[in-house]
Design a protein around this nucleic acid. Sequence first.
DNA 1: AAATTTTTATACAAGTTTGAATATATTGAA
DNA 2: TTCAATATATTCAAACTTGTATAAAAATTT
Lengths: 177, 177
Amino acid sequence: MSIRLVILGILNQQPLHGYEIKQIIEEYMGDWTDIKFGSIYFALSKLAESGHIEVIEENRTGKRPAKTVYQITASGKEEFLRLLKKAWCEHKQVIFPFDMAVFFIKYLSKAEAFQYLQQRIEKVTQQLNFLNDHKKEHRQNPYIPKEAIAIIDHSYYHLEAELHWLQDLLKNIDDYL
Amino acid sequence: MSIRLVILGILNQQPLHGYEIKQIIEEYMGDWTDIKFGSIYFALSKLAESGHIEVIEENRTGKRPAKTVYQITASGKEEFLRLLKKAWCEHKQVIFPFDMAVFFIKYLSKAEAFQYLQQRIEKVTQQLNFLNDHKKEHRQNPYIPKEAIAIIDHSYYHLEAELHWLQDLLKNIDDYL
DNA sequence: AAATTTTTATACAAGTTTGAATATATTGAA
DNA sequence: TTCAATATATTCAAACTTGTATAAAAATTT
């Protein structure tokens, strides 16, 4: 549940309401996380329930839903550090949904498999190019923290690995059909 | 939801009940999927509800829960191919939960970050060694399909990428703290 | 042969995720 | 200025996941 880590990490800097948290996640983590806004509100109420954050303001403008501003508590700061250390220590195995597709390759015709593989190779190549440009922009912008570049590199290294593996797969496609 | 793909793919070969499906998943896909047995029964009832599979036998031995044997239907075979092609075409971005940990690196002391990173490097190295042995075994066993080796290679390539990235991170750790 | 552990088999409650629904304010275009 | 589009802000029902509970047969130990 890295969503609790994110929210506590963000609220660790300043009190915010749900929508602002959503915007920060989208702006700074949008490229490498996939947190749905529905989950943010659920996590906020859970964290509030357990006393890790607390409501400091309910700001109603006109008849719009009230902005509920949350602030991190002392126990929340502890919980944040606990979750952060846990995230640094635990090594969850990465799951590749595409492995499932490969597992059932025998139900595809050779032509189909060939075509799909080429499309994947093309897509990954595009993503690598995109990340390259993205990284150059980031390097030139002094406001982007260095960690952001490390995180882009993370994706870059794995996309390279993916590309090489896909190329091997294409080369040996006859073995699998 | 690759669980529907898995179940349809397995039932595409022969009728089976839930527990047998669980065993097949554990035996053949245990290394690279993470399907909990609870989800299998949920998926089975959903697939039955939509007519993609049907109950062909309810075998009660004594007072144990009845074995409910499912068989794929014509519409299930169609659905299987649809899901398989979808899985081959779509390129879901892989999420690395560790990125979140890196994002908040500034809340860690240098000594801590250093130690955690070295532990991760050690762990990934172990996994690479394990996969190497695993692959050798698989190559010598004529009953293991070639796709299985391709899937191991998939993890291997990505673990290598992870290792190199972690080594870079360790080298440049001072930039991030 | 009695007791313990493991394996077989599923149901289900509790927790979580998701996206659609809701309601209003603000911005920009015609 | 008035209409449409976009941005603000959250709630909630429905779908899904997870692990625990249940129950008994089979295998193993004592």
